[in-house]
Structures are given as structure tokens and as C-alpha cells.
Amino acid sequence: MLVTVFGSLIFLTILTVVSSRLDLGAFNVPLAMLIATTKAALVVGFFMALKYDNRVNSLVFAVGALFVIVFLSFTLLDTAFRGDLPNTTKGTIMEMDAAEAALQARQDAGPGAAVAPVPPPATH
């Protein structure tokens, strides 16, 4: 059985090299990660024998994997979306709302109407 697992790991290694030589566009990275995860699962399940081991060790491993997922996804929630929000200027949200309301008032009054100039958002 160890030989079968070893053979599968060799096959998957060749597969990941071959697939990376082909240009699969957006699928390049997910496919490589899928193959790597499959290989890791084989090593954990059979070489490390977690499949046949005391269940408490599986729990330890699962909790560790969960923390890695939390670490990665919550970091990406920050870094992958930086600059996507409009309210990251130095003015506060209330000041920006006031400036927007003033702009709206000037637009409602129509062209040529004498209205007070829009106050610039205060900077801190």
C-alpha cells in the first residue's frame, strides 16, 4: 500500500509539471494547488497514517488547518481589497456627507443660482 501511495505521489508530481507547461489561463494556479493539496492529503493520510490513527490526532491536525485558513482568508480580506472603498480620504464620513449634501443642494438650485461654495472636507 505504501508503494501505491508513493506511485500516486510520483504521478501527481509529473501531472503538476506537465499541467504547468500548458497555459490554462486562470486555472493554472487553482489546478496546481488542487494537485498539491491532493498530494499533501496522501502524505498525511497514509505516510503519516492519520487515516488509521487515534482520532484525536486528526482533530489536532484539523484545528491547525482551520487556523491556517482563518489566517490566510482574513489577511486577504484586508490586503486584496485595499483602495476599493471610497471613504478612505482624511475627512470623516460626516464631513463627506455634508459636502455631498451641499453639492446636491447646488445642483437642485439649478445653474446660475447663487449658493455658498462647497466647503472642502476638513483634513486632520
Binding site: 508530481t13 503538476t16 504547468s20 494556479v29 496546481a32 498539491a36 499533501a40 502524505v43
Partner: peptide, 14 residues
């Protein structure tokens, strides 16, 4: 070994 299984595609292939 598992760490390298991930490092190889991430660094060398994609």
C-alpha cells in the same frame, strides 16, 4: 515533505 509539496508548484511552476 508536505511543505515542499506546496513550495515546488508555488515557486517553480506557476
Amino acid at each position: 515533505d508536505i511543505i515542499w509539496i506546496f513550495l515546488f508548484p508555488l515557486l517553480y511552476l506557476i
